[in-house]
Structures are given as C-alpha cells and as structure tokens.
C-alpha cells in the first residue's frame, strides 16, 4: 500500500494562521517522519482544520513554511500531492455516483496501487454496496467510503480531518485498525479528532492548538 524508498519527512517552520484578523496560531513547528502520527487537539475554532488545509497545500500559511524532504510544498505542487491523501470535513465523494465509480475516480487522481476497488470497499465494510448510489447510503457509510479513498492510491502521508465523524463504535474500530496498519508499515498520519485515537504501535506527537493561540 505504501511506496518504499527513502525516509520522507514533513516539517513545519514557524507557521502562522490568521483568520478574520484573529491569530489562530503562530510559531507552530513540528517534524513528522515515517511511522509517526501527528494528532492535533484544541477547542472548536482553534485552527485545526486550517492547519490541515495548510499541510495539504490548499491554504497558504500567513507566515512560515511547510517542507517535504526539505523542499517547500508550494514549489513541489503535484510532486507533493502524489505522496498525500486528504479526507476533509467534506467527504469528497459524489452522491450520484456509486461507491465503485467514486473510488475509480479517486484512484485515477493519484498514483494507483495494487489494491482492487472491491478489496478497498471490503476493508471499510462496504462490500455489497458497490452498485448502490452513494446518496442512498447512511452518513456513516458515506464517511467510510470517503476513507476508502485512502486505500486505492499509493501515498505516504494521510491528512484526516475528523475521520470518525458519524461512525459507530464498530466503524471507528475498523478505521483505527487501518490507520494503525498505515503507520506501522511506514506511513505518516496527520489527524484531528474529538474522539481519542488509539494507535497501539505508533509514535504519536500531540499538538494542542489552544495553547498556541496568541
């Protein structure tokens, strides 16, 4: 599932994020290596989602830089995106397509891996729903489909914004196992969650954004 090769590194240097004249955080720095997980904590509105979007490269930081193996991610562009997968607050799936069609599109946008689309659906317990319109799935099932996007491309860094939203206890367990597998086989994880994330075999860094508020 994960490309092999050199040890990648994601670094943030003196990141600052300003929203509506309010400084959400400043002077944020961290370093994330393979096999590690970064868990962002903080109150609502403390800038967790903004930080994740900065790490993705969708949003620009108001100050500071994010680098991948030492190069600014803005300069890398698609060469950075090929290593990352993002599941945001919005699922990023089309309700009028079937789960299979959604996954086929997600796979084509990145670097495909060996997992078949059916196998990816099976891993998130959606096997049997592959030809139902996504609109007719429950909110939790839609969320699991969004997370199944992670499994069909070959990426190192998973950036997840509240991955456990609308999942039931069993669903949370399934996804936690996937996250654990990802990091223990050399992947990186940057995640925000209100739910305590149990990753047994992973080095975890925690950053509480509420502490960094100016």
């Amino acid at each position: 599932m994960i490309e092999t090769g050199n040890n990648n590194m994601l670094e943030a240097h003196a990141l600052e994020c300003i929203r509506d004249d309010r400084t959400l955080f400043s002077g944020l720095a961290f370093r994330l290596e393979r096999g590690q997980a970064l868990i962002l904590e903080g109150r609502n509105g403390s800038g967790k989602t903004s930080l994740l979007r900065i790490l993705c490269g969708i949003r620009l930081a108001d100050a500071g830089t994010v680098t991948w193996d030492g190069t600014d991610i803005g300069k890398l562009g698609p060469d950075y995106h090929v290593h990352t997968a993002y599941v945001g607050h919005r699922d990023g799936i089309k309700l009028d397509l079937t789960p299979l069609e959604n996954l086929a599109m997600a796979r084509a946008l990145g670097k495909p891996n060996d997992t078949t689309l059916e196998a990816a659906l099976e891993k998130v317990d959606l096997y049997g729903f592959e030809d139902v319109l996504t609109r007719n799935l429950s909110a939790g099932q839609q969320r699991r489909l969004a997370l199944a996007r992670l499994l069909v491309t070959d990426t190192v860094l998973w950036i997840l914004d509240e991955p456990f939203t609308s999942l039931d206890v069993h669903g949370i367990q399934v996804i936690e196992e996937l996250l654990d597998q990802h990091t223990s086989s050399g992947g990186m994880l940057a995640v925000t969650s209100h739910h305590a994330v149990n990753l047994a075999s992973t080095t975890i860094q925690r950053i509480n954004l509420s502490d960094l508020a100016a």
Binding site: M105, A106, L109, K111
Partner: peptide
C-alpha cells in the same frame, strides 16, 4: 458548483495531475 459543495473540487486540486 456541486464539486465545490461536496469537496470533490479539493480532491482535484490535490491530485498528482496538472
């Protein structure tokens, strides 16, 4: 519009293609 609303537009920007 609809791609923006359901988040698929973000995925296009984050794809490994131009």
């Amino acid at each position: 519009r609809s791609d923006f609303e359901d988040g698929t537009l973000e995925q296009f920007l984050l794809s490994s293609h131009p």
